[in-house]
Simulated assay, not measured.
Amino acid sequence: MIKKIFAGIIVLAYSSALWAQDDLLASLEAEQADQKMLVEATFKGTRLINGHSIETRKKGVMDFMISHRFGTIDGGFYELFGLDYAQIRIGLEYAVTDRLYVGLGRNSFEKTYDGFAKYRVLRQSTGKGSMPISATWLSSMAIKTLKDPENDLAFTDKLSFTHQLLIARKYEKLSFQIMPTWVHRNLIGEEDDTNDILAMGVGGRVKFSQRVALCVEYYYQFEPLNNTTTNALAIGFDIETGGHVFQLQFTNATAMVPSSFITQTTNDFFEGEIHFGFNISRTFQVN
């Protein structure tokens, strides 16, 4: 009799513990539903491939970035599929706040210096007061310092400007981004049609594992700079290794500055005029 009573007490106590655990889990789920949770890592780095992603770094983080584009692979074995030639951009970027991000760089393509500022306007979130998208504004300025022996250009003639609204959404392992873009060039050549170019960029990222993802990026020009330019297309892979984000890519764009690769790409991706290249990023907490 005593054993039966003791067994009953144990069963009752165990059942009460399970009910209490269920109530606690339900309470925690209700609390999480009421809390606003930011969606993190829509993209792994601040670049989608050639262009910017909506991402910025955390406040006080400095990012040293090297971008490399070899020659086109249609040069064959004689040019080692483009490895005999290269364009490079070196940049240094800093997160002033969690939302404000600035940077400077130098691209060997036409000896171009560039600077940019980007600000996170919206953050995708879940829970109470959720936001379905992320949005970041980007403004950049570039100056080409390649000497022109036939023309003595003023400083302002060498300037170009790019403004973009980057809009993105993350769906578990899939991220998607659109990039309405306006590029203005202060001076254009005789063969060029317009100082102002409107373009629409689209891109995405599919995550295969914790460290590897496939990325695609395409920019369509509504009115090209001239009849020799083509739309920039890029396909790449993100590989995360500790503090590094390593991006391998194939693109028809030679330049690595927005005003240049969006409006001055002349290679045809589907004719084999493709550059193999990479971006490598190393971050440092400095503040």
Rank of each mutant, 00 (worst) to 15 (best):
F77H: 07
A33D: 14
Q32G: 02
R99M: 04
Y220K: 11
I54T: 10
R47C: 02
G127N: 08
S260Y: 04
G103M: 05
S139I: 15
F208N: 08
G91C: 07
A7T: 03
L225T: 07
L28F: 11
F208H: 10
T46I: 12
F284Q: 07
I66G: 10
T181Q: 11
L233Y: 06
S108I: 00
Q35W: 00
D23F: 02
T145H: 12
I143N: 08
F161D: 01
G127I: 11
L28P: 00
E271C: 09
A7M: 08
A255I: 03
Y218S: 05
L48D: 00
H184Q: 10
I167T: 12
G272S: 08
D192M: 11
I2C: 09
I10M: 12
N226C: 08
G236W: 01
E93S: 13
E191M: 11
L92C: 11
N186K: 11
Y78D: 14
T97M: 03
F109H: 13
V206Q: 12
N226Q: 06
I262T: 10
G272H: 06
A95H: 05
V96R: 08
W182I: 04
G203M: 04
R120L: 12
H52R: 01
Y78S: 15
G8H: 06
V212P: 07
L122I: 01
I167Q: 05
L100K: 03
T97G: 09
I235W: 09
K207Q: 15
I88F: 13
M37D: 04
A199F: 04
V216A: 15
P258V: 00
G75Q: 08
V206D: 06
A86T: 11
K170C: 14
G127P: 05
A30E: 14
I239Y: 10
W137N: 02
Y113G: 13
R205C: 03
F109A: 14
K3G: 04
Y171S: 07
G115Y: 12
A7D: 11
S260V: 03
L153W: 06
C215A: 15
G189K: 04
S16I: 14
L48I: 10
V11E: 13
I167D: 02
S140L: 04
F284I: 01
L233V: 10
I239A: 07
F176P: 01
L28E: 11
F261V: 04
R123N: 13
H275N: 12
G51T: 07
A213V: 06
S53P: 07
F161K: 01
M62D: 01
E172N: 14
F269Q: 00
S209A: 09
H275P: 05
H275W: 00
G127Y: 03
G236S: 06
